[in-house]
Simulated assay, not measured.
Amino acid sequence: MGDQGRRVDGPAELDLPVEGGTLRVLRFGEGPRPALAAHGITASGMAFGAFARLLPPEWSLFAPDLRGRGGSADAPGPYGLDRHAADLCRLAEGLGAGSPVALTGHSMGAYVALLAAARRPELFDRLLLVDGGLPLPVPPGADLDGILDATLGPAIARLGLTYATDQDYVDFFRAHPALGPYWNDDVETYVRYDLTGPRGARRSKAREDAVRQDGRDLLASGDRFAADLERLSVPALLLHAPLGLLGQEPPMLPGDLVERWTGGPGGLPTELVEDSNHYTILLGDPAKTAAERFTALA
Rank of each mutant, 00 (worst) to 15 (best):
P100M: 09
G80E: 11
A75T: 15
A75I: 11
E93M: 11
R120A: 15
A63E: 06
V130P: 00
P140Q: 12
G132V: 13
A75K: 01
P100W: 07
V101M: 11
R120F: 10
A118Q: 02
F124S: 05
G77P: 13
A52C: 10
G133D: 13
F124Y: 12
A50M: 14
G49A: 15
L128E: 09
R90D: 12
R119A: 15
T104C: 15
P135D: 13
G80R: 07
A117P: 06
A116F: 05
L129V: 09
G45Q: 01
A63S: 11
F48Q: 03
E122P: 07
G49Q: 10
L114F: 01
L61W: 01
A73P: 02
A47T: 14
L114E: 00
L66M: 14
A110E: 03
A118M: 06
A52G: 05
P76R: 03
P139G: 08
G71S: 07
G109Y: 08
P57V: 10
L81N: 09
P76V: 09
P57D: 15
L88A: 08
R90V: 11
R67F: 10
G94L: 12
A92R: 00
P100V: 08
L61T: 03
P56M: 07
E58K: 00
G94H: 04
V112A: 07
R119T: 15
R67K: 08
L136W: 11
L129T: 04
A63C: 13
A50F: 03
R83G: 06
L81W: 00
A97Y: 00
G71R: 00
D82A: 15
G71D: 07
R90W: 04
A75P: 05
R90Y: 00
M108F: 02
V112W: 05
L115T: 11
L88I: 13
D131G: 12
A116M: 10
A118E: 04
F48P: 05
R120S: 14
G71Q: 03
L136F: 14
S107P: 03
S60N: 04
Y79N: 05
G133N: 05
E58M: 01
L91P: 12
F62V: 10
L54T: 05
G141T: 09
G71I: 07
T104E: 13
M108Y: 00
P135V: 12
L136C: 00
G133S: 11
A85N: 12
F48K: 01
R119Q: 15
A142C: 13
L115M: 14
V138Y: 10
H106Y: 02
D82H: 14
P139F: 06
A102V: 01
A142N: 08
G96C: 06
A117I: 07
A63M: 09
C89F: 01
P64W: 01
D74I: 00
P56H: 02
P140S: 13
P140R: 06
A118G: 15
A116W: 03
A86E: 15
A113Q: 03
G141K: 04
L134G: 04
P78N: 11
A86T: 14
F51K: 01
G70W: 02
G45N: 02
F48E: 04
L114M: 03
S107N: 04
F62M: 06
F124H: 05
R90N: 02
P121W: 07
G133V: 14
R126I: 12
L88P: 08
R67D: 08
A117Q: 06
A92E: 09
